[in-house]
Every structure is written in structure tokens, then in C-alpha cells.
Amino acid sequence: MTTPPPHTEIDGAPATDPGLLAALLTGYGHFTAMQVRDGRTKGLALHLDRLDRSTRELFGTELDGKRVRELVAGALANAGRRDASVRVYVYPGVRTVVTVADPAPDGPGAPQRLTTVDYWRPAPHIKHLGGFGQRYHGEAARRAGYDEALLTSPYGEISEGAVTNIAFWDGTSVIWPSAPCLAGITMALLEPRLNSTRRPVTLADLPGFRAAFVTNSRTIAPVTAIDEVTFPVDEELMGRVFAAYGAVEGDEIRP
């Protein structure tokens, strides 16, 4: 027998779908975030694979990619948008929620200053909900005058930003930390298109790098400082990075 959802109200009014609200309130689930331009997004197959893989791991069932595309295309049409920031959330019962918001600015992101914190996300390979720890450290970093928190182990091994991946430039190769992290879609698109490698990176290694940058679904931005270690903005490197990303064709969302 299925237990009915509890009675739920929002601002004093009954929720129109108590079952969905009950799923949302668990704080358990996962999502993906994408930028849509003219009804297309880069790395659509990677987004759909991420959603299906995480749904199988968290809920023991598949998530049909065609259905996800239909939901995203429908949400964009209902919002009257061809350009947008879109998120797809999956909750218990494989309830799927799509949000459509203003698109992120195109082009290079503003240079960022990072501060390190001793924290690694649980199950970092999943873009999961309940990211209190990373949000807490990210907000603390901004209050302290930084742009983002950089997550490290107690022994100083670097994994990722609170909401970004980070890469370093040694003058020859782009190096992505090999510590457990979320392999973001932007990172996944750039990695094979640059002279990239993955290896452990520690705080002690930072002075030996010539440049650094961060990536996520909203931005690619140079890093100018990590705590007391400073980096110049390598315009040639960033030009190569943006050219590599710009060369990725967007995939039509509508199935």
C-alpha cells in the first residue's frame, strides 16, 4: 500500500501537487544544468547520460532521454524562450522538474580569486542535491572577499571548486586535478580538445603553475589568485580554451 503524501501548504495555500512537494522536501536527488542557445545546448548526450546514470544509481531505474528532451523543449516553449539557463532535477519516484531562467552572459567570465577550504563533497561523482557544505563554504568565501571556494583534502590535495572544476597550466599541458570530483560537462567537452592530463594537484604545487582557470555550465574564467598564490591571466591560453569550447556544436533539444 502506498503511503499518501502529507498535507502540504505553501504560504498558507494547499500545494497543487502534494506528491511532488513531498519529493522535493526530501532534499534527495540530482540534477544537471545547461545553457541553451537557439534551442540547442552543447554536450546534450553528456547531460542525458549524467541524468540516466545518476537516476540508476540513486533510484535503481533508468531515465528515458527522449522524455527529458520533451520536458525541456516543452518548458522552453511554455516560457517563450530559445535562449535560457535550464536545469533538470530528478527526485524520488523519478519525479522530473525542469526550470527555465535567464541565460548566463556569453563570453569570458570575470577573473576569480579563490580561497581553499578543507572539504570534499560526498559522492562527488554525482551532481546531487543537498549541497549544504559547498554552499556554506562558497558563501563564506564571498563574505571574505573571494569569488569562490576551492575544495581540498586535509592533506592539501585539490579536487574542485564549490560549483566549478579547476584546471592549471604549466606552460605545456592543461592539468585537471585527479582527486574525486564532479566531472562537469564543460570540463568533459574541453578535456579532449586541449592538451590535457589528469594528475594529483596539491597546494604545494601551486607556485609552479603559470595560470589557472575554472569552468562550469555558466562560465569559463581565469583564476588570478588562490589564497596568497597569484597567477597572471594568460590571454593566449584563455583564447585557446574559449576557441575549443566555441568549436563545440550545440545539439537540438527538441527530439
Rank of each mutant, 00 (worst) to 15 (best):
P4K: 09
P6V: 01
D11G: 12
P14R: 13
L21P: 00
L24Y: 09
L25R: 15
L25C: 14
G39T: 03
G43P: 11
D49F: 08
E62I: 02
D64C: 09
E70R: 15
A73C: 05
R81V: 06
R82Q: 15
V86L: 05
V88F: 06
Y89G: 08
T96Y: 04
V98G: 14
T99R: 12
A101C: 07
A101I: 02
P103W: 01
P105M: 11
P108A: 07
A110W: 02
A110F: 03
P122S: 11
A123G: 01
P124M: 05
I126L: 15
H128K: 15
F132D: 14
Q134K: 13
H137I: 00
R143N: 08
A144P: 00
L151H: 01
T152V: 13
P154E: 06
Y155A: 11
S159P: 03
V163W: 12
I166H: 01
D170H: 08
T172V: 15
P180Q: 02
L190T: 05
D205F: 03
F209I: 00
V214E: 05
T215M: 10
A221M: 08
A221C: 06
T230G: 01
T230M: 00
V233C: 08
V241R: 03
A244H: 08
G246R: 03
A247D: 15
I253F: 06
